[in-house]
Design a binder for these strands. Structure first.
Length: 201
DNA sequence: GGGGGGATTCGG
DNA sequence: CGAATCCCCCCG
């Protein structure tokens, strides 16, 4: 029983939504994958968030309608994709860190540059954007309506009752206490999940 | 207008 | 472990 997720689902705090997004299907361009690892980011209260210093041109999507895609560009070559959470005017987002490839694996391999094992296709936030054809032009795409060809679908697979939890990855020392939060969540044992330290609940 | 740093990835 | 390779944003 596949169904699109509702606007209300996303209009809650990112840290609440994040573990519930595990096992949800992300529909990309000619390829789909099941979400197996995510991170939550709050807004102006979260020193690790792009929205920490308030609205800017880059993070505008984070302050807008929940359920839309926030895409940012980093390290001069990579894109990363987030799902906007929280009410309009309140910044929040869930970074999608890894997928289990479901469909369109040949398309993913072509985009990722040659023969790759399935676990090499979507096991990272920039890898999965490349595999699904997500780029800067997709910032603001509405995942609830599916306009723009990107969507989130509940196919009936429930989120795990006992997700792995860990610290968020790649944060600089300047974020201080925000780096200690266990705001990264994963499907236990999935091979596409990163091997950074986990605290299993 | 300048400069530091980045929610990463891949190869040596 | 460091290069790749831009863009964003804060500060002066």
């Amino acid at each position: 029983m596949a169904r699109l997720l509702t606007r209300e689902f996303f209009a809650r705090e990112a840290v609440i939504v994040a573990p519930e997004l595990l096992n949800v299907v992300l529909v990309g361009r000619g390829a789909t994958g099941r979400i197996v690892e995510v991170e939550a980011y709050a807004g102006e209260s979260d020193a690790a968030s792009h929205a920490f210093r308030g609205p800017t041109a880059r993070n505008a999507t984070m302050f807008g309608l929940p359920g839309r895609l926030y895409v940012y560009f980093t390290y001069g070559m990579h894109h990363c994709a987030n799902v906007v959470c929280g009410k309009v005017g309140v910044a929040g987002a869930v970074l999608v860190r890894a997928l289990a490839p479901l469909d369109g694996l040949e398309t993913m391999r072509r985009r990722r540059g040659g023969a790759k094992a399935p676990r090499e296709l979507c096991s990272g936030p920039a890898k999965l954007c490349q595999a699904l054809g997500i780029a800067g032009v997709d910032d603001g795409a509405d995942l609830v309506t599916g306009e723009g060809g990107l969507a989130l679908v509940d196919d009936g697979t429930p989120a795990p009752d006992d997700p792995w939890c860990g610290r968020r990855v790649g944060l600089s020392a300047r974020v201080g206490g925000a780096g200690a939060l266990l705001w990264r969540f994963a499907v236990p044992g999935d091979p596409n999940v990163s091997r950074h330290a986990w605290r299993v609940e």
